[in-house]
Design a protein around this nucleic acid. Structure first.
Lengths: 194, 194
DNA sequence: TTATTTATGTACTGATTAGTACAAAATACG
DNA sequence: CGTATTTTGTACTAATCAGTACATAAATAA
């Protein structure tokens, strides 16, 4: 049986919460702030997310990741050059707006902030980054099989280097929030993909 | 004129505060927790650090950095192979104890957590990482002049790559807190130093 | 000793925190 | 219409937060 209808849908309020969490991190974001950003009241929030802030956060990073990874996979599938899509993926860092640099990678931030604080959140962040690494891995394998990638380096190791470069760029971009600096840095780092 | 003598010295309590800040970050560390770790009372604390938690934190990252960078510089000066010392510096990541991996790099953590939260702390963290990059830069220059480094790549760009790899490894080590994985990863990443 | 200075310990403040309790509102079904 | 069901808004709680106030302690200097 149906009761009073919801005035919101989970997907859109999670997206609104995401912007706040991404900018401020987990601990520094208050539930009050989240409620204002999501545009709902306390009653609705704790009904929709029984375990409160932590449940919302886990759903937020999951939704953020799913949409990003699905787009990346689709782009790769639609292309005949998987490695080139990976390159473009890295280049979005340099192309993003200047104020975005300070925010870094939402998942990397989460891993850094929560690694010693919350096992559940840490493991979720690790799993997400490993899924991204896995996409890199498959793209590299594809490139090596097609001959577009000449390097004989083990694809697993190359993928692990890529995720490390990704993590690093998302810290370094805060030091150098400059289009040109980041562009040349990314280009140089990606020379491992030869 | 002298009054009642202090029961502690700043350097040692800053070091005690450092362990807590490094593990938990800025926002999630309470002043109560810091007082317990430092072994002093509120009265003494706010007398020694007029601006409270933030002043303590800034002094903590400064002291942490000064000691680390001075040791690194001394090691480089005492060696006839500056680049080899830089390699060893990176390899300390792989060699550290497993539970240390979750803590990452104190300064990198600070930049990630505070970039959008506190301008003073962000700029201090950026300055510290740039000082480390500068040490890399000079080591690379030395290596290129002596012929120990064959690469003709611009030393400035190489140093920027190194700080990015450093930042990246300190995130990735939380995904793979394993001696062997990190060792091979570091070795591969440092192949830019040829 | 007495005055001065500095350090310490503790009680307190007002703000903010995450989360709960619960009555009222809005729907569907019979 | 009336009852069951679900959502909503608001008042509340108990804990914790960073920081202040201030009396007392412990030293030096006169």
């Amino acid at each position: 049986m149906n009761g009073r209808p919801k005035t919101f849908d989970d997907h859109s309020i999670i997206e609104k919460a995401q912007r706040v969490f991404w900018k401020k991190g987990y601990a520094s974001t208050s539930t009050d702030e989240l409620l204002v950003a999501m545009g709902i009241g306390r009653g609705s929030f704790y009904l929709a997310f029984k375990d409160g802030k932590k449940e919302l956060f886990l759903k937020t990073i999951r939704q953020f990741h799913n949409e990003g990874i699905n787009k990346l996979k689709a782009d790769i599938n639609a292309s005949d050059n998987a490695v080139e899509i990976v390159r473009e993926f890295f280049n979005t860092i340099a192309k993003s707006k200047t104020d975005r640099h300070l925010n870094g990678c939402f998942i990397g931030n989460t891993l850094v902030e929560m690694a010693s604080q919350d096992e559940d959140i840490r493991e979720e962040a690790i799993a997400i980054l490993k899924e991204l690494e896995q996409v890199f891995y498959k793209a590299i394998l594809t490139g090596q099989k097609s001959g577009q990638l000449k390097t004989k380096t083990d694809a697993r190791l190359l993928a692990r280097q890529l995720i490390t470069i990704w993590n690093g760029l998302n810290v370094t971009r805060r030091m150098y929030p400059s289009h040109t600096i980041l562009k040349s840095l990314i280009e140089t780092q990606l020379q491992i993909l030869i």
